[in-house]
């Protein structure tokens, strides 16, 4: 309907008072209204009798400035979004009982092992992603890391990028599920004669025992058979200076050493899936 008041302000009713503008001085003769402080505007929207007072108010959301106040006054520590997945990287040489000269990039096992303890114990960490790009290293240090990862109760997924050679093999297969990038390679070769055992060079028998430790670990934690792994280890003709085999991407999956060819996306998805399965198995309610 046509509203004459809005269209023509001149034709307003005589008792009209503008709501915007300077307040008229309060008349000292009029008694002050209860609940209204003189000089201040009374509530412009009087609550309608019978109606719910909460519905007449406009909902404006959270009071402004509470977060800022907490942050600036430091009254409480705000929980920062933290990842439930932790990532352990094994790069370069796995450094063991001997600290290697500085031209080597090394992964220090004495730091990785307590880290794994911390991750196992931590409430927030639900899964561990192991990223490998290693050229091997100390047998004992590598096997120590592999055994620690294999005995963790939390879901673990490994991904071999670039290379997972020699002692990288046992570390790669130690997780619940393993991935290898399409172009990544893994060298499987016999343990060579290096180092000393209390002053005398190792005998063949000793080296054979060391090799057996690696072979047993790998065959127990992957789908490769002992015969197949030994065959790859002692194969001649593929490596120029040495005996052994280089497995590239899909080859490692075909022999049963690694579970799947894949990259980061697949690895993280698999880890999420394992975390869900782990939660359902332990019967912890989802919160």
């Amino acid at each position: 309907m046509y509203d004459s008041n809005q269209q023509n302000p001149q034709r307003r009713p005589p008792n009209y008072t503008p709501t915007v503008g300077p307040m008229p001085a309060p008349n000292p003769n009029t008694p002050p209204q209860p609940g209204v402080i003189p000089g201040q505007m009374p509530n412009p929207i009087p609550p309608t009798p019978g109606a719910d007072p909460s519905k007449t108010r406009r909902v404006t959301g959270k009071p402004k400035g509470t977060l800022e106040a907490i942050r600036e006054l430091g009254t409480t520590e705000l929980p920062e979004p933290k990842s439930n997945i932790h990532c352990v990287t094994i790069v370069g040489q796995v450094e063991g009982h001997l600290s290697l000269p500085p031209q080597n990039k090394t992964t220090k096992y004495e730091h990785i092992i307590p880290q794994l303890v911390g991750l196992e114990q931590s409430q927030e960490v639900e899964g561990i992603l192991l990223i490998l790009n290693t050229v091997g290293g100390d047998v004992e240090a590598g096997l120590a890391i592999a055994e620690m990862v294999a005995s963790m109760s939390k879901p673990t997924v490994s991904i071999v990028l670039g290379g997972g050679h020699s002692i990288g093999g046992p570390i790669a297969v130690s997780t619940d599920y393993s991935f290898i990038a399409e172009t990544a390679s893994m060298t499987i070769h016999p343990i060579r004669l290096n180092g000393l055992v209390v002053g005398v060079p190792q005998t063949y028998e000793y080296l054979d025992k060391m090799q057996d430790r690696v072979i047993h670990f790998v065959t127990q934690h992957s789908n490769i058979s002992e015969e197949k792994f030994r065959e790859l280890m002692f194969r001649t003709g593929e490596l120029a200076r040495d005996i052994g085999t280089v497995l590239i991407g899909r080859d490692a999956v075909e022999v049963g050493l690694i579970d799947e060819v894949g990259g980061l996306g697949q690895a993280v998805n698999k880890l999420k899936q394992l975390i869900e399965e782990n939660k359902n198995r332990s019967g912890v309610p989802l919160q």
């Binding site: 040489q93 063991g96 080597n104 004992e140 002692i167 070769h189 060579r192 060391m210």
Partner: peptide, 12 residues
Amino acid sequence: MILYTPMQLELV
């Protein structure tokens, strides 16, 4: 201590 690596030992 035994190093199990395809890298040349002289280099390491």
